[in-house]
Structure formats: C-alpha cells, structure tokens
Nucleic acid binder design. Structure first.
Length: 934
RNA sequence: GGGCGGUUAGCUCAGCGGUAGAGCACUACGUUGACAUCGUAGGGGUCACUGGUUCGAUCCCAGUACCGCCCACCA
C-alpha cells in the first residue's frame, strides 16, 4: 500500500542508486546499439571543481536532464557527458585562502611543486562535492565517463592544440598592454574585466611650456599618478588653439622630463581643454598614440601597481592610490592644479579579485581569435549551429565580428603550463643577445630538447632548469667556457620552461571533443561528435560557446553542436540577481531537502520560458511539491480500487465513453509534451503535463470513473481499471523527464499489484499514439463536464447548501441529450449532487434554470432560493450574451468584413452568433417562467 | 555611443491577427471513502502610451516613456 504522503527525502537516494547501479546512464547500451539507435549527446557545461550547486546549475542541469531522459525514453543512444573544470584562478584562490586560514606558509614560500600537490589533494578531497550534488538533483549523466580538464587525456589535448596553433601561427607571443590584476598578479582577458561606474574626480593639471614663461598647457586626468609616466601631450591637428605648440615641449612637473606636444586625431577638441596627456605604458589609447609617434613607453608600476624606479624617488614604493594623493598634493603646492571636478566614469575591475585593473606592459601569449572566428561565424550564418532563442545569434555575431586577440597566458600555477621552452638567442658576434631568446614550443620536454639541439647543434648538452629556478621571468641563463679570447665556446645550454599557465577557458574550449577522447580517434568521438545540443546561460556565450565553436571547427572540421539552447538567469522573486552580499541566495539543496528534487526541477522547467529571466519564488516550489502529492494520491486511489496493469492492454479497444475520452486526452497530452520538448519550450511541456495530470486525470477522469468502480458492471469495471492504470502509466512517462523520482517510485510501486514492468521507467518507451479517443467521446464527456460545472456554478452562486441534494429537470432535450442523460445519470447525480434527473416538456415553476445547448436544465428550488436573486442572475447572463451579440452582429453586418475576412473566420462568427442567439432565447424563456412563478 | 530584451490579473509569468490564459495570492462554501500539500465556486485586466498597416491589432510596423541587460568608450 502506498502511504498517504510521498516523502521525497526517504526515497530519492535509493532510486538514484538503482538507476546508477543498473548502468542505464551510460551511452552505447548494447541493446540500443544493436537496434540501431541514433546517438544523442550533450556535454555538460563543466562546473567549477571548487563549486557547489547554485540555482543556475540547478536550472542548467535540470534542462539537460529533461532532454537526456526524454531522448533516452525515445530509444536513442544517449550520452550525457559529465565533468568538472579546474577553474584556474578560482581554485588557486580557494587553496591559498585555506593556507592563510591555517596559518601555513603561502604559496610562494611553499614553492610551485608543493603548492600544486596541495591543490591536487584538495581537489581529491572536495572536488566531488558538486558531482554529488548533481546526483541529488537527479542528473542522469554517464558518470563512468566523468572527466576533469586537467586529466591526463584532456591535458594532452590542450598541449596538442597549443602546439598546432603555434605552428600554424595562430598562437604567438606579443609585448603589449594587458589587463593586469595587481592583486592576483596575473594578466587577464578582456572578458574578465568588469566596467564599473564609479564616482571619481577629474583633475586638470597645468604643464608648463618649455622656454615660455607663464604659459601652460592644461590636461585632465582621472588617474593623476599616471602623469609620472607621461611622455607626450596630444592635441588635435586642426585645433587652432594649439597649432603653434605642436612640436614644442612641455616640462612634466614633478619629473622634469621634457615631453613633446604632438598632433594626433585621438585628441578631442570638444573634450576638456582639448589637450590630452599621453601615458603609453598605462593606457590602451595612449599606447596607440605612442606607437604612432614613436614615443617612449615608461612603465612606472611594478607588478603590485606600486611606483617603481622609473619614477622620481619621492614616489617610489608608493601604492598607486597613495601616489595619486601625493601627486595631487605636490602639484597643488606648485599651483599647477587648475581645477578638480566631480566626475563619474567607468573603472575596470577584475571579476575575481575585485580590484582596479591596470593596463600594464608585459609579454603574453595570444590566440589569433579573428582568424579562428571566421569559420565560426560562417557556420552560424549557414545554420549549421542554431541558437535557441534565435536572437542570441546577433549577440554572437556582434562579438565575433569584433573579436580581439585572446590573451591566454596567466601568471598562475594551477592550470596547464604553457608548453614553451626558452633558450638564449645568439647574435652575429656569437654572444647571447640580452633580453632576447629562442622559443621552442613542443608537446613535451623531450621534443623541446630535440628542437633545441637542432638549433644549437647536436654536440651541445641541453639542460632544463628545474621548477624551483625557472619561476623567474625572462632572461637567458647560459653556461659556457670563456677561457680564451673571442666569442665564448658553449658546451651546455640551459632551457627553462615558460612558468605561466593557460587561461582556464582554453581547455574548456576543447571540451566537446577532448572529453570524447580527442586527439585519439576513439569510437565515442566518431559516434557522438558533433554533439546535439549545448545548454547554457547567455553569460558565457563569449567565454565558452564562441570559443568551442572556433576550436571545434578548427580541429574537428565540424561544429561542436547543432543547437545552442540559451536559458535565462535565475533571479530572486524581486528580480534581483542572487548574490551572497545581498543575502537573497536560494540554495537549491535546501529546497531539495524541503520539497524534493522533483519539485525544484519542475519549478525551474515550468518557469524556463524562452528569452526571459526566471524570478524564482519559494511558493512555486511548494506548489509543485503539492502537485507531486496530488499525483501520488491519484495513484493511491487507483491502487485502492485495484486498478492493476493489464499486460498488452490496447487503449483503442475501450468501449466505455469515458475510457475512450481519457485515451484521447492521453494522446493529446503526449503530443503536446513531445512537441514542446522538441522545440525546447520546457515551460509549455511542463504545463501540458501538469494540466493533464491535475485538471484532466484527477479532476475529471478519476471522478467520472468512481460510479463505475463502485458499480456492478464487471465488464465496465475491468475495462476502466485497465484504462485507468494505463493512463496513469502514460502520465508517469510524460512526467518522468521533469519529476524522475516520484514517477519512478510510482512506476515500481504500482507494479506490486498488477504485473510489474519489465524495465524501470527511466528506460520505458516514450508515449506516441494516434487515433485514440475520437470526437464523439470528446463531445459527450465535454457535455457531461459542462452539465456538472453549470449546475455546480449555479448552486454556489445562489447559495444552495453544499450538502443539499436537489432534483433536476431537463427541458427540451433532443434525442442525443436524452440519451446522454440516461447514460450518465448516476455520474451527474453524484458529481452535481442531484437527487434525481428527469426529462420534461415544460419547466417547473420557480426553478433555477441553466441553458445547455438546445436544452434547459431546471432545478426546482422554490423553497431554497431567492427568486429575485435568480431573476437578477438570469438578467446578467442575458446582458452578457447581449454584449457579445451586438459585437458579432456589428461585425457580420460589415460588408468589408464579410467580403475580406477568410471564409472560415466568417463562418465561425456566424456560428457563434447563432449559438448566442439561441442561448439568449432560452434565457429569456427561463426568465419569463421565473417571473410567472413569482 | 552601439546592441538586445521587457511593459498583459494583486504577484510571477504564458500567449496570440479574429471570444485574454496559468500558477500563486484573494473571497465564499465544503471532512462527498484518493488527496486539507485538498475539493467546489467566484472576484479581478481601456494587454504602458501615441500613431500607422488591416475588414479586424494585446499581437505586425514606427515613434514615445519607463525598466533591465550586454558590448564599446570615457581627458
């Protein structure tokens, strides 16, 4: 026997284990393969290995699981490929914080190797958290294939991609300004920089003109400290105010450097004074100006953004913000500050460190993204990959068409170390050139050494500096003998490996093929690539989707997926982004504990309408928990009424009208759910099955069959039991992708009475029907439902006590109606709380009357009801229909409408008109009778 | 500056060229042998505004207002 209430917490774990142990999650099931099943593959957006499940993950993985389970039930060979991401910066930060908390030596004191060991052991310990949380959500991933971006196999893929792209000239090293994070001490990519609107100041400084007394040129800045690195002042070439100054020099205050006044179109005459200070080493625009004019680039910051030795001594060692204050104070003391304005501008912040980013001149590795983007743009243009909803393609194109070189090197330790080795570069004089070096890019140290030998000569011994020594930036280390005059004679050359690691997204970009085994030519790679659909949030279209497109096309010559489904962000019920600082975070695991994974999943799916954010309210989760209880109790009802499964039951064989009808409703629900999931309209699918279960099956079917089940017609009873059981099973299937646990539980438990199913629900066949039900059954049950509803409505409106049973008289019934009344007499009496139904030519006096098609149903309630209230009610009805009639007649008498509107529309309006007029006539008669009685 | 999206019931949202829908909330009644995590019934909407297209516009087009997001720039 089923308990009265379903308790998710007690069964979910066991059900999940049953699925997992049975191996049904795995791709390549032999029976399916044998049956020629088509492959279906989704690769999971790998969650950060340090992470724990948040609402975004819950949504993302629910939708993937809906698709996965749906396709699995449709018989496809389904692989949902799981795994986690090493998340360079995030993970390194977590472990460093841990070291700090435990008051252990920091990572630098610890050394690279020790630190990495530490990260790995941390990963071994805590890296499984989010995977287990995905299990709690019900995710049916093939865990036997779980991958990690720093796995051996995936690392091999990373190396190959790096080396290949380098050899193809698509990866290169360049010295230019990068976004430097002075807290994390690494370069970051443009995407990792957030522009934050900030209230600050605009300082206007006066730079004296060289050789002219009391003449100044005024420049404005939001970052006064950068003036220490100024190497020019620019004015617009056509700005007449300054034309005589071009080519002259200003004397940089505090520093004393003479800086040139140059003409450059970058200077905007409209803005400020029209003259702009140029700091090529610390501003992206100034860098360009500097290049154009061959200006000196003076770097005034060290890696911590403290003033370095290139600035006057007074400022050295000062942090950038302290330096700012000092510079302003010193200029004020010299009366060189013209004015200070309040100024709102955007300031770049690191998305992980949350400190102000400085443009800083360093040498970094870049990917030539513009070249790789071309095929990726074309593929979407040709429709090889389609975005759902479609409008995200615009965003994708916009970014891809303006893509900048991708800075991929990071000055971190946790990640894929760049496979580049450096050695000294020799000049023609036979001496190493200071600051220059040879680069050997190879998939292994051995191959790098080979390359070095080719370069330096086979008889030279090549050594590779150890990890501990190589963590210095650049600068060749050469061991040689120089005991005779002339160029030195080398016996050994030392190489050192680039200490940097790759941007985490570099390995993520390979995910759709690296997880399937590439660069090996595995059967999985052949079978599942390209994958089917990528499900993700719009916030990582640039970070991830675009880059997978580029890498997939370049290395596999085929797009990584045919569809990209972009879902919304989950916000709180007020529409605020969930964040720890706002304290509005909803924890999916808490919701699962409280309401069950099914309720949470269903909520997320039901709210996942395309193109909109999800504002999640607890009350919705609670409501869908109730939905589960409702389903559970319907199953309980069937169980109590011995509705067991009948093997080989054919729903089209039903003789009872109500059974034909429900079969037709099942068919309808099945096609609605199927079509909606196919179109990624998860909300429509969820609502369709919700409506079927609650408002069709529970509200009506279960009520309609009660008289049969408690009646004495054994044949009808047997058919009904079989049909009820079948219909519920079909509903369980349709609901399973959304609520896998409760449906699987019921599937099993209901087998305890009748024959059990051969398979678990997770692998049952998805419903597909045609020709069930039929119009006659639908019309008839529709009529019964309307009859009952009308009676209930009028009873409630006229305050007929709920417990009172009253007689009903059907007046003016046609042949069909009379037959229906006879067939459903007991049913109607029970559900509308009617004592007896009779047919009559004329209505009894003083009765409540409702119009039902050609007939009028009268409830003689003279003693119970208020005649004037009923009169009032009928008048209102007449008015309501009257309004419709006048609207319709106006339309129908309009020649333009009749002649131009499509035939079927006109016909429809005529029918409605006829119906409305008939109903009005009936209502008027009813009113007349009532007044006669009064 | 460029782009995208939104404005429909008290709330959260679907929808659609031809009767405006759901869930939640609300009101009244109700322990009828599955279910009070429930049942029955009900109230509630000039579909932001202004024009245009159309026989007909909440829906299509243009503009306006307000809200949100993304990208770029900022002396």
């Amino acid at each position: 026997m089923l308990d009265k209430t379903y308790l998710p917490a007690e069964v979910e774990g066991a059900i999940y284990k049953r699925w997992e142990d049975s191996g049904v999650f795995a791709g390549g099931q032999p029976d399916r393969m044998a049956a020629g099943a088509k492959p279906y593959c989704i690769v999971i957006p790998p969650p950060n290995v340090t992470g724990s499940l948040h609402m975004g993950h819950a949504l993302n993985n629910t939708l993937q699981d809906v698709l996965t389970r749906f396709e699995r039930m449709r018989g496809k060979d389904v692989l949902w490929q799981p795994g986690t991401d090493h998340a360079g910066i995030a993970t390194q930060m977590v472990v460093e914080r841990q070291l700090m908390e435990k008051q252990e030596p920091d990572r630098r004191a610890m050394g690279r190797e020790k630190f990495l060991e530490r990260v790995w052991s941390w990963k071994a310990e805590s890296g499984g958290t989010i995977i287990n949380q995905l299990r709690r959500l019900g995710a049916s991933c093939d865990w036997s294939r779980e991958r990690f971006t720093m796995d051996e196999g995936l690392s091999r893929a990373v190396l190959k991609v790096f080396v290949d792209l380098y050899r193809q000239g698509l990866i290169y090293k360049d010295k230019r300004l990068v976004n430097w994070d002075p807290k994390l001490l690494t370069a970051i990519s443009d995407l990792e920089v957030m522009q934050v609107e900030t209230k600050g100041h605009l300082w206007h400084f006066k730079y004296p003109i060289k050789g002219e007394k009391n003449r100044f040129i005024v420049v404005a800045t939001t970052r006064p400290e950068t003036m220490l690195g100024d190497t020019a002042v620019a004015v617009h070439p056509e700005d007449e105010r300054y034309s005589d100054l071009v080519g002259k020099f200003a004397v940089l205050p505090l520093v004393g450097r003479e800086i040139k006044i140059v003409a450059d179109e970058y200077a905007d005459p409209e803005q400020g004074s029209g003259a702009v200070k140029i700091t090529p080493a610390h501003d992206f625009n100034d860098f360009e100006v500097g290049r154009r004019h061959g200006l000196e680039m003076i770097n005034i910051f060290d890696e911590h953004a403290c003033i370095n030795e290139n600035a006057p001594e007074a400022y050295r060692g000062l942090d950038r913000f302290a330096a700012r204050k000092r510079v302003v104070a010193d200029l004020e003391a010299q009366e060189l500050v013209e004015k200070i304005e309040d100024y709102t501008h955007t300031v770049p912040y690191g998305d992980r460190s949350n400190v102000v980013i400085e443009p800083w001149l360093t040498e970094q590795w870049y990917v030539d993204a513009a070249t790789l983007a071309k095929p990726a743009i074309a593929a979407v243009e040709r429709g090889e990959t389609v975005f759902v909803p479609r409008n995200w393609e615009k965003t994708y194109f916009e970014w891809m068409r303006n893509i900048q070189p991708w800075c991929i090197s990071r000055q971190l330790w946790w990640g894929h170390q760049i496979p580049a080795w450096y050695g000294p570069k020799f000049g023609e004089d036979g001496y190493p050139i200071s600051g220059e070096y040879e680069v050997f890019v190879a998939p292994s140290e051995r191959e790098a050494i080979e390359q070095a030998k080719n370069k330096y000569g086979a008889n030279i011994r090549i050594e590779v500096l150890s990890d501990e020594l190589r963590d210095l930036p650049l600068g060749p280390s050469v061991s040689h003998k120089a005991d005779s005059p002339g160029p030195p004679h080398f016996t050994a050359i030392q190489l050192w490996r680039d200490p940097d690691v790759l941007d985490t997204w570099f390995s993520s970009a390979l995910w759709p093929f690296s997880t399937l085994g590439w660069p090996e030519e595995t059967p999985e790679l052949a079978r599942y690539y390209k994958t089917d659909v990528l499900v993700t949030g719009f916030d990582i279209i640039f970070f991830w989707v675009a880059r997978m497109m580029m890498m997939g096309l370049h290395f596999m010559k085929e797009v990584p997926f045919h569809t990209v489904y972009i879902h919304a962000l989950v916000r709180d019920e007020k529409g605020q982004k969930m964040s720890k600082s706002k304290g509005n975070v909803m924890d999916p695991l808490e919701l699962i504990d409280e309401f069950g994974a099914d309720a949470l999943r269903f909520t997320l799916a039901a709210m996942a309408a395309q193109g909109r954010d999800i504002k999640l309210a607890r009350s919705r989760v609670e409501g869908y928990r109730n939905f589960g209880t409702k389903l559970w109790n319907a199953a309980r009802f069937l169980e109590m009424n011995e509705c067991g499964r009948v093997a080989g039951f054919d729903p089209s064989s039903a003789a009872q009208t109500v059974n034909k009808w429900i079969a037709g409703e099942v068919e309808k629900a099945a096609s609605q759910v199927t079509e909606a999931i196919e179109a990624y309209r998860f909300n429509d699918a969820a609502n369709a099955i919700y409506h079927f279960v609650w408002h069709v099956f529970c509200d009506w079917y279960v009520e309609l069959i009660k008289p049969v089940l408690s009646g004495s017609d054994e044949k009808a009873k047997a058919e009904t039991r079989a049909m009820a059981s079948w219909a519920l099973d079909e509903a369980l299937k349709l609901l399973h992708p959304f609520m896998p646990f409760i449906t699987e539980e019921l599937w099993t438990r209901l087998g305890e009475q009748g024959p059990a199913h051969e398979t678990m629900l997770i692998t049952a066949h998805w419903p597909r029907h045609s020709g069930l039900g039929g119009k006659a059954a639908a019309d008839e049950i529709g009529w019964v439902i309307r009859f009952i509803t009308e009676i209930r409505s009028v009873r409630a409106e006229l305050h007929v006590p709920a417990g009172a049973k009253v007689p009903a008289v059907v007046v003016g019934a046609g042949k069909e109606t009379a037959a229906r009344v006879a067939r459903h007499d007991e049913l109607i009496r029970r559900l509308a709380r009617i004592e007896e139904i009779s047919l009559a030519k004329g209505a009894p006096k003083g009765a409540v009357q409702v119009v039902l098609d050609e007939a009028t149903v009268a409830l003689p309630l003279v003693d119970v009801i208020d005649i004037s209230a009923e009169t009032e009610r009928l008048r209102r009805e007449i008015d309501k229909i009257g309004a419709e009639i006048s609207q319709l007649s106006k339309r129908l008498s309009d020649d333009k409408f009749v002649s131009r509107a499509p035939e079927h529309v006109v016909e429809e309006q005529r029918e409605r008109m006829a119906e409305a007029e008939a109903a009005t006539a009936k209502l008027r008669e009813a009113l007349k009778r009532l007044e006669a009685a009064a």
